[in-house]
Design a protein around this nucleic acid. Sequence first.
RNA 1: GGGCAGUUAGCUCAGUUGGAUAGAGCGUUGGCCUCCGGAGCCAAAGGCCACAGGUUCGAAUCCUGUACUGCCCA
Length: 566
Amino acid sequence: MHACETLEKILRGYVAGKGWAWPDKAQVTPTKEEKFGDVATNLALVLAPQAGMKPRDLAADICAAVQQAEPAIAKAEAAGPGFVNVFYAPAFWQATVGEVLAADADYGRGSLGAGRKVQVEYVSANPTGPLHIGHGRGAAVGDSLARILRFAGFEVSTEYYLNDAGRQMNLLGLSVWYRAQQILDRNPAEPEDYYKGDYIKDIAAQVLQDNPFLDARPEPEILDICRQAAQDGILAGIKADLADFRTEHQVWFSELSLVSSGAVDRAFDHLKERGFAYDKDGAFWFETTKLGDDKDRVLRKSDGSLTYFASDIAYHDDKYARGFDLVVDIWGADHHGYVPRMKAAVQALGQPAGALEVILVQLVNLLRGGQPVAMSTRSGEFDTLEQVCAEVGVDAARFMFLSRKSDSHLDFDLELVKQQSMDNPVYYVQYAHARIRSVMRKAEERGAAAGAADAAVLARLETPEDLRLLKMLAQFPDTVAGAAKQLAPHFVSFYLMDLAGSLHRYYTVHQVLGADSPDLVRARLLLMLAVARVLRSGLDLLGVEAPERMERNDRAPEGEDGSPTD
RNA sequence: GGGCAGUUAGCUCAGUUGGAUAGAGCGUUGGCCUCCGGAGCCAAAGGCCACAGGUUCGAAUCCUGUACUGCCCA
């Protein structure tokens, strides 16, 4: 927060001037709801022992110094057990309107990342079936996080890890061939534990159409064709779903390519060089006991095949070789047991402790009117991302996913998310934006224009509702930085709900176009423009649209006993 | 049997890394349309932050234990 930075600078000067050291525990924070002040510091409390003064006396001294140092500070008062509350003059807040409008889409853009390279890997679902709603949550979190990190000054690359090697893919090919044989009236034996979804039948039919003499070929070749066709078809579907969901993966990384590119051998060498791996009984072992695991793990079995862990290690080794300072993986929470092992592996490869961050995304309970919806991919497809989006809309789905901590269970009730009420805050936020746009359209009709954001005009923004909005605007950059730091997109959602609430309140209390004087109209138009700008920027970070107008909510006419007459 | 998360208002959830008097929405109750879109606003009620200890100036937040809930692994 700008206000915090300003104050902290003054305080540091004050402390240095006295010859004291700046205490680690010193905090300068915005206070909530103007309860105590615009900004508060506990400096007097934590500094008191060092200064050899009572917190109360020290606080009084700080207040005097602060007030003298900065004309924008209207009042500073000592409070509580050594806190100092600082109130800024309205002009300080009013200036943020000018900052917002001047920076436009760049308002809130930060330098926290300092150009560091970050990779966000997300979704990465096995291409064995369509994406379901749980993947959707991961997609929303990953995509939004990428946008936020980018905005906070990181150089971000997004990636999808394609598990195109291994048993699951073979099973997929087998499943398709099984269905194909059924179509050919062959009455084949049912494979064990195969993929049962209807989409397999569709793929089988397609394969038969594309390969008229399929069953004349040798079996390994058939399975190969089936597997490839299934993978291509399903992957195309996944890509389409993700595009419809407004998420972007810049790189699609194939697991198979790890072996052919030599990444596996390189990673194994790295482990060996660093003394974390050895050969034994014809297998290649990762000495995880050195890292606190209870037993060592096999990476290459004696038959020459690689374990999942081996692929993952090679994959991550490759990520760092590509120059990423920070890798963020977004995983389903059912993989949480894997996190410490993966982090340990990354350290064994020579990366610093914080080089890998794993965000766990909890399961989504899909409900309809409070009743659980069948979640089985084999029985039906009620829970695919595509169907959920078709029913509730991308905006509502994304906002819902992003208005919770990712690591907590989420009840996703189709009826509630479809419902246009505060149970579904996306409309609340979007409506705030649409309201402002509506005012702007009306302003144009009436020939009213905002004009330049000069201080004299902005000085008219002085009611509590004005100041509330102004302070919210000033807080946006801080919110973005916090979200980036904590890897928590939901900070942005909550901020937006807060900002939207302040706007709605403003709207009902104050007339913009009907204000008393032309200057006041101009001032309020400027404020509205700034709020709309920040709403749009914030929504964009979530991948949610900021509409020009809301669709009319056609409510039944009231008053005439709205009961049905038949 | 080990391990990881979680437990905050009737319900669904925040709580910015230990700060002041605990925050929203929904639901409930009561108000507000001559007005830029009421999909809105205002007010009230609603809390032993699961429980018990500990750490310190200060704990929803940190440490230990207990009880439930969910999930991973054997």
